[in-house]
Write a protein that binds this DNA or RNA. Structure first.
Lengths: 334, 334
DNA sequence: AACGTTGTCGCAAACGATTGCAGAAATTAA
DNA sequence: TTAATTTCTGCAATCGTTTGCGACAACGTT
């Protein structure tokens, strides 16, 4: 694994490495002729600058770290694409890690990225993240960090979010308008702000329509499909059957959806269902599931934009929180 | 952005950077007491080794580059998870790039990763990749490369694939056994080996059962959902309506699925459908779609294992091609 | 003829870490 | 007491690149 270096070019042309470096960077001190020669030889040797050495010297890095709970979730893979698009346009490459919803793994990832001396970090925290100390430690050294979707409340950084409470409120309101009255909510881990907020929106809608808030109708679990399935099972075992489900996200909605069908009930006649995120799958099942459209790609883009701005500006940094718009997509399940 | 270095620790303890380096690496030359002190101070300063400087010096890198066409495709995100799992276990981090199915972009990504002096590359090529020169250039410098799924035939490297022809053959055979006789095939870009192979399997099954091979029934397009939709539309416009569809992959199958439903035909009564990859979505639509289960996670794992073995062995490298097992998952669509 | 410009280029130090080699101190052996 | 050995640590070079500074021609200007 030996790649040609600037020295190889220098030796070949009988000039100094400094001159080669300057020529490659189009420095005005260097004559056009020398630049031409260097350019030629560089092509000939198939030279790639050693980014490693460059960033060691310049103390600048063009790598952006990204940590998400799981790549395979459509929301995140789509957000990653958004991040990558912006990063690419600004000359950065991204380094993606998965926390797999584990706090420990998230801390390890954070340290690994810090060791790689990334220019900045874009992150959506795991469902088990209990505090933001690992982020604060990086921030103290001046590392720019931007959170998206699942933010860490105790860290003072830029954030790209949606209004979860309002979106949930609108979704539940929609169910109420459709005439559903026994609306259950399957939520996620309550240490995640997005889950708490969505639950708040749910409660607010019920309250405003003086609908009875049944504690049993709020069931807390994880964020995966199987959690939705199990939660729905628990609801059935309860004896009291709701006439509508508001799920914290689409995978959970799909899980509940499956269980309802298996149980032999009709959607939306017996039970209506509303999800969250507009995962492509929701439009393909029968009936298609009503959901809240969350601009995943756009959130990734915006997060990357904020991060790069922060990396490249030398002005005093002041964190901003951007709230992106959501829309309710009404489909056959409600 | 100033992170503490080995020098900071050295200064604080009034010892030399070399001693600190050795202490951190648990070198036998260093006394237990010194190691303890270094350890303490390192913790206290929240020191992370500068991977950049380390790999510059040691000429070893612990970053594995990954290039896939699109992260958002379930097959790839799942394969990435497989790669990441293995990489993580062996102390590597991965750097993920998307080619977005563009050859140019793939070349740029390759060069960027080369500049980052990655330890090796795992790649599934874009549907527009016309040759493997950009890979050969890297190989010439000794960079280990492993292909998975979409391989580059003209590059002599390790590969992790499935038997596409046989899998397709089995899938089509299944349709024939079920009594379907007018089986159409929606394929992908023909410069991709996987597409050609699947088409071969399709043809072979037809031939063996002396079924008429209708040129119009092989329709070539892209690998996305919309391509399946359009191809199905084209088939309908043809006048001759097939009684079964074998799609090159699941997104295409889903697209065709949608069009068939819109057209008012029943699946599987009027038209049966079989996909490829076992994308989770295929089990959720109604009826669920028969598909070929492709071990995406396992392919990623295996590719990473082969790569790491190649990186870490100093023996003469001889490329291997591993063929992973597929299984046909029969569901309601056939 | 002496000087200042201008245009090109090289020297050498630096970035943060690793490592072969040498040196100092402490210990033991003769 | 002196030499040999062991144990611990530091010096300095190195990885590939960047960059401040100085060198040195070849000019033109007085």
């Amino acid at each position: 694994m030996t790649q040609p270096t600037i020295k190889d070019i220098a030796k070949k042309l009988n000039i100094s490495p400094s001159t080669v470096s300057r020529a490659l960077n189009d420095h005005p001190d260097i004559s056009a002729e020398t630049k031409r020669l260097v350019e030629m030889t560089s092509k000939e040797l198939n030279y790639f600058p050693n980014t490693i050495a460059q960033s060691l010297k310049t103390k600048r890095s063009t790598t952006i770290g990204v940590i998400v709970p799981e790549i395979k979730h459509d929301f995140f893979s789509s957000a990653i694409s958004g991040i990558e698009k912006v990063a690419y346009q600004s000359g950065y490459t991204i380094m993606v890690c998965q926390s797999n919803e584990s706090y420990e793994r998230e801390v390890i990832n954070t340290k690994a990225l810090a060791s790689q001396r990334i220019a900045g970090l874009v992150i959506s925290i795991s469902q088990n993240t209990v505090n933001g100390n690992h982020f604060k430690a990086l921030q103290k050294r001046g590392m720019p960090i931007v959170f998206f979707d699942r933010v860490c409340d105790d860290v003072d950084a830029s954030k790209v979010v949606i209004n979860d409470e309002e979106s949930a409120y609108k979704a539940v309101n929609h169910l109420i308008e459709r005439g559903y009255t026994k609306i259950a909510h399957i939520t996620g881990p309550l240490n995640l702000k997005i889950c708490k907020d969505r639950e708040e929106g749910y409660k607010k809608a019920l309250r405003e329509h003086s609908l009875f808030e049944d504690k049993d109708f709020i069931i807390s679990s994880g964020l995966h499909e199987e959690n939705g399935y199990q939660s729905m099972e628990a609801l059935f075992n309860l004896g009291k059957i709701p006439d509508a489900i508001f799920a914290v996200n689409d995978p959970v909605a799909i899980g509940a959806f499956k269980k309802i069908k298996e149980y032999g009930l009709k959607i939306p006649d017996d039970i209506a269902i509303v999800g969250f995120s507009n995962n492509p799958i929701t439009s393909l099942v029968e009936p298609p599931i009503t959901t809240v459209n969350q601009p995943s790609f756009g959130m990734g883009q915006r997060a990357a934009e904020l991060l790069i701005k922060q990396i490249e500006s030398d002005a005093e940094f002041k964190p901003v929180t951007e709230v992106l718009k959501t829309t309710l997509i009404v489909r056959g399940s409600s």
